[in-house]
Amino acid sequence: MQREVMFAGFGGQGILLSGKILAEAAMAEGLEVAWIPSYGPEMRGGTAYCLVAISDQPIGSPIVRTPSHLVAMNRPSLVKFAPTIKPGGVIVINSSIIDIGSNRSDVDELRVPVTDIAKELGNVRAANIVALSAFVARSRIVGLETFKNTVDVEFAKKPDLRSINLAAVEAGISAALKDR
């Protein structure tokens, strides 16, 4: 079965990296993956999104109009993509800066103040990892242990960011489980 996750927000919020980490984690579980960015004149403060397709079969068309899940880091992203998500999907909303809901009763909506949580941890730039972790904990699209290892490997190259991102993983997971 193929599932797709849309990550969307402002340029600079780490959207593309969130998607890449999820794709790496799925690959580590032996699944087929494709990561597709929005590309072109994207810049800090502009819009950015990427789609990650994960499947147990070779991926035919990675381009879908109705993704399975959404991680919305800002309000325009939620407004744009929430109506397209397949019924039963998970929608993670960055409630620190989004004051509306998905307006969907057929999805699993998870509101997490990821920007505030990242600020409390000491670096607002870890908000993407909080959101991704909350999403993974809620959807279980990949195993939590695989996911944690993947984040660890990703930030092994950047030792000054490693501990805060590992803390962001734990904070995101507990936020997702607390809400349930």
Partner: peptide
């Protein structure tokens, strides 16, 4: 094309 160039795959 842009998809082949921009997409990440294993």
């Amino acid at each position: 094309d842009g998809l082949i160039g921009q997409m990440m795959e294993p």
